[in-house]
Design a protein around this nucleic acid. Sequence first.
DNA 1: ACGCAGGGTTGCAGTCCGTGCAACTCTGCA
DNA 2: TGCAGAGTTGCACGGACTGCAACCCTGCGT
Lengths: 217, 217
Amino acid sequence: MTEDRRARKKRETRQSLRLAALRLVDAHGLEHVTVEMIAESADVSPRTFFNYFPTKEDALVGPGPEAAADVARFCLDRPDGEPAAAVLRALVLDRTAAFLGHSEELDLQKRVLATNPGLYAGFHAGFQEIERALRLEMGRRSGLDPERDLYPRLLAATGGAAIRSAMELSRAGDRRTLSLIVEEAFDLLEAGLAAAPPARRAAPSRRRRTAAIAKTA
Amino acid sequence: MTEDRRARKKRETRQSLRLAALRLVDAHGLEHVTVEMIAESADVSPRTFFNYFPTKEDALVGPGPEAAADVARFCLDRPDGEPAAAVLRALVLDRTAAFLGHSEELDLQKRVLATNPGLYAGFHAGFQEIERALRLEMGRRSGLDPERDLYPRLLAATGGAAIRSAMELSRAGDRRTLSLIVEEAFDLLEAGLAAAPPARRAAPSRRRRTAAIAKTA
DNA sequence: ACGCAGGGTTGCAGTCCGTGCAACTCTGCA
DNA sequence: TGCAGAGTTGCACGGACTGCAACCCTGCGT
């Protein structure tokens, strides 16, 4: 009984509210959708909405309650000796792939985000909660203190930066798949920040390089 | 006449509001300060407050209107051949040092941030606007397209991640100066993400290392 | 000196968000 | 069958934020 009736109902209501919010905003635009409408459409009282989400935006782009736990679980499942940076790469790729999937919720969320860039702030803010779980794991893997050492923190934050950059680039018109872009990002990060990829017009270097596929004339 | 009477008054009012907001929040706590009080204390109407800041939080932690321009200027002043990553490092250090300075505004802001961690979200959100300016410069320096290439984006985002990590670590109790922590962050980033510093108990490696100063037993 | 134009400020009225509280209902259990 | 605790709801309230229209004031041309 991992989930009794109560818990199930709660989860359903939450999901119901989230979907209602996404559908309405997708249809009418963020500013024309009120919490009242969302609650109405999910068939609960407006007051109840706030028992589930602290703000309207959270219903749209907040991390699910499982997010942090998912991350932790993923890390735990990785081979024991694997270094922190490798786990991070795998994790980010995994999350990215998940985001690339299809479902009504995901598709709506992508459209809503695209239509309403202002929501990206809240979306990324949600990462922070996840970064905390991540930081702990990065500490464990690297034998450092997740609280007092810089490296685990920096790894976690950099993971977020990589995702963000990849998503923005994708939004800016890069037609490659998100996963590919993320791979490039990690190639760059692992090569070291100072190692710039060759400039646009330069001949491709002799190393295999996921990067720098010209898509301009 | 880079600044006529009108412009000066406007700047003054803005600053006045910001200071009033910081002082009041520092004294009474974020939740007990209303826009009305802030306006009152700055001697303008509440309505006017919103002509200057879109939200209460913006008055406290929003980036000044000069921020992006400052960043651009700093980059322009750097020697011409200097690679993007080096400029980034210098820039971040410079901003950090600026943040470390003293003035009523800065001190209040630091205290207010410390007392009220919820504001960090908005504070970091302000970076995004700055990252845009930064991205352009990073593109120029690396001969890449700031819009279509990943590297400039990643650099800019990573700069933000470095600052954030450093600030969090400092907040978590690291007694070193912020600038020092930032240096360590860039050392790590330039060495490449995969190059983990030695674990806690290992003997210090033979390289000079800004990092890993144990402060636990 | 006068008046005009445009930018800045204000008050007003209104909408919606978000919260504390107390009453109610429902579920699971003894 | 009754009880305890979790979840839901209504109510009332304070405060954020916005659009609008009127006002004021500064700089400028005549």
